[in-house]
Each structure stands twice: as C-alpha cells, then as structure tokens.
Amino acid sequence: MEHRSLLRIALLAGEIMLRNGAETYRVEDTINRILKSYDFEVIESFVTPTGIFVTVADSSMEMITLIKRVQKRATHLEKVALVNDLSRRFVAGNLSIPQALQELQEINKKPSYPPCLMILSIGLAAAFFTVVFGGHWQDFIISGLIGMIWATLQMYLHHKEVSNFFVNLVGGACIGCIGILFTEVIPLGQNLDPIIIGSIMPLVPGVAITNAIRDTIQGDLVAGNSRASEAFLIAISIATGVGIVLKIYMLITGGTIL
C-alpha cells in the first residue's frame, strides 16, 4: 500500500506546483525525487502545462500509470516554494507519509493575499511603473486609480468565470477609457503615454514569459512552446483592448492623440 500513498503525494505535490506557476522541469524533478524514496524499478514522469503523467513499475506489482489534468492555473509562488521545501524534507527522511500528505493539503488550501491588498498592490504597481516610465505625480495618481478600478473589475470577471482572453480584452479597454477620460476629457494627467504603459504592466504575463524561456532552455520544448503561446495570446488581447478604445476615440474626435 505504501507505494500508492507515495504516488498520491508525488502527484499532489506536482499538481500544486504546476497550478501555481512552477517551471515544468521543477515539477518533474519534484515528482521523481519523491518517488525515488521507494525502490521502484521504473519511474517516469511527463509534465506539460496542462497535465501530469506518472508511471511507476516494480517486479512485485503491476505497472501503475496516473494522469492528472490541470486546468485552472494561478500564480501563487509561495506555494511553489513551500512544496519545493517539503519535497526536500521528505526525501531527507524528516517526514512520514501521512505527515507529508497532511502538510501538502494544508499548503494547497493556503489563501492568497486578501483581495483588498491585491487591488491596492495592482494600483500601486501601476502607479510606480508610470513613474518608472517617466510620468509625473498627477499621472501617478491616475494610474493608481486605473489599476485599482481594473483590478476590481478583473476579480469580478474571474468570479463569474469569464475566459481569460476576454478578461484581458476588457482590461485593456478599461485602461484605454479611463486613461483618455483623465487626460483628454478632464485634463488632469500630463501625458497619456506613461499612464497607459504603466497601467498595462500589471497585466503583462511575466510568469508565462519567464517560464516559457526557462522551460525551453531545459529542453521541455512542448511546455516552452505552449507557455510562449499563452504569453503571446495575453499580450495580443491587452493590445487589442487598448487599441479598440483609442481607435474609437480618434474616429469620434477626428483628431489624433499624443
């Protein structure tokens, strides 16, 4: 029976890591490392961004293959760090199997930062990026406002389970609308350029881009390619959202912005 619980631990550890933004090779490595603590003759794991496949075999038992489909992905890097640490302690023999399983389930339930803090952070990140890209203090305030409005909207849409593509499209359009409102209609902001660039930064798929590169370097070409296309799709949907709004504004006023 021990090998079954071991397999459960390995799969759960892998799933938590994959769901929360770990690189593919790290997930495979963790699964293999946990399984090596039992004397299996064959250990194979294959991980893609959307699923995990694990096979183990021994002379004393039938070959077991498990597949885990991973659909919802988020970014929770603290969980990745915690599982990474747990797998190390487990392999070193400092954890029993039931303890490890319980601890994994606790990690899995670990909450993210509270929504208010999240909204505030997105606002402040957007605001500071505006300054990084050469905005004034008025622009700082406007970007902060845009970031917070957009973050609230995003949480609402995710709650309603709208597809990611549409959420980013709406996000881009929202940034474009509020940006134009506060620079052209109500001339409070100094320049539209840094406001929009700063505000779209929190939408930029940083984890997807970084992991796409790291996966490709490691030779996980399937994973690298699918992450790259994920990043590309997000970038296009944001750009389309902002672009539509700017184009409509230009058509209405007949003039150009900037």
């Binding site: 890097l77 990474n84 890209f133 930029v204 940083g206 970084t210």
Partner: peptide, 23 residues
C-alpha cells in the same frame, strides 16, 4: 526557488512600452 526572484526582477525590463507603441 530561483523563479521567485527571476520573475519579479525581470518585470520592469519586459518591453510593455514597446508592445503598446507597436500596437
């Protein structure tokens, strides 16, 4: 894991501005 520092540190360098200007 190295990802934690890499993902966050690389963010200001990501060409968001270039993307926007192209679009």
């Amino acid at each position: 894991p190295v990802t934690i520092f890499l993902v966050s540190g690389i963010i200001p360098l990501v060409p968001g501005a270039g993307m926007y200007r192209t679009m």
